Amino acid sequence: MEALLVSTGVVALAEIGDKTQLLAFVLAARFKKPLPIILGILVATIVNHGLAGALGAWITSAVNPEILHWILGFSFIAMAAWILIPDSMDDEEATAIRRFGVFGATLITFFLAEMGDKTQIATVALTAHYGTPLLVVIGTTIGMLVADVPAVFMGDKLGSKIPMKLVRTVAATAFTILGAVTLWSAWGGLKL
C-alpha cells in the first residue's frame, strides 16, 4: 500500500507545472472537450507508465540489490534537482493536436511527452525501489490524473493561481527524502 500512496503523491506533485500538465491546459483551452482529453491522458499514461514499470521490474531482477540501492538513492536525488527546473511545451506537440482529433492528439502527445520525462523515470525508480510494478503504475497513473484532470477542467485559469515554485519545492523535497532514506539503507543504516 505504501508503494501506491507514495507513487500517487510524488507523481501528482511532480506533474504540477510539468509539460504534460501544460499540454492538458492547451488541449482544454483549444478543444473544450474534457472527456476525450481525460481518456487520452489515462490511456497514454497507462501504456507509458506500464512500460516504465516493466523496465523497473527488469532492473530489479537484473541488478545486484546493493548496487541498485545506491543507484536508486542517487536517482531520487537527481530527480529532486530535475523537478526544480520548469518545463515548457514544444511546438511539435502543439502541431500533433491539429492532426489526430482530440482523443488521438491527447494520446499521442501525452505518450511522447512522457517518454524520458520526470514521471516516467520516477515510475521506473519507484518500481525498482518498491518491487511492486502494478501498485506503482496504478499510483503513478492516479498521480497523473490528480494533477492533469483539474487542468483539463479549469484550463489555463488554474495555472496562474498555483504557486509553482512551492509545488516544485515540495515535490523535490519528497524525492530528496526518498533518496536519502534509500542511500542510508544502502549504507546499512536502515533495512527497507
Rank of each mutant, 00 (worst) to 15 (best):
L84P: 01
L84N: 02
I85K: 06
P86I: 01
P86K: 01
S88G: 07
S88C: 00
S88K: 02
M89I: 14
M89L: 15
D90A: 04
D91R: 13
D91E: 13
E92P: 02
E93P: 00
A96G: 04
R98I: 02
R98H: 14
R99T: 05
F100Y: 14
F100A: 02
G101A: 08
V102C: 12
V102S: 07
F103Y: 14
F103W: 13
G104K: 03
A105T: 13
A105H: 08
A105F: 09
L107D: 03
I108V: 15
I108C: 00
I108N: 01
F110R: 02
F111D: 02
A113I: 03
A113Y: 09
A113D: 12
E114K: 03
E114A: 11
E114N: 15
M115K: 01
M115Q: 09
G116H: 10
G116N: 11
G116E: 10
D117C: 08
K118Q: 11
K118E: 11
T119I: 08
T119N: 05
Q120R: 06
I121Y: 13
I121T: 15
I121R: 10
I121G: 13
A122K: 04
A122D: 13
T123W: 06
V124C: 09
V124A: 06
V124Y: 11
V124G: 07
V124F: 12
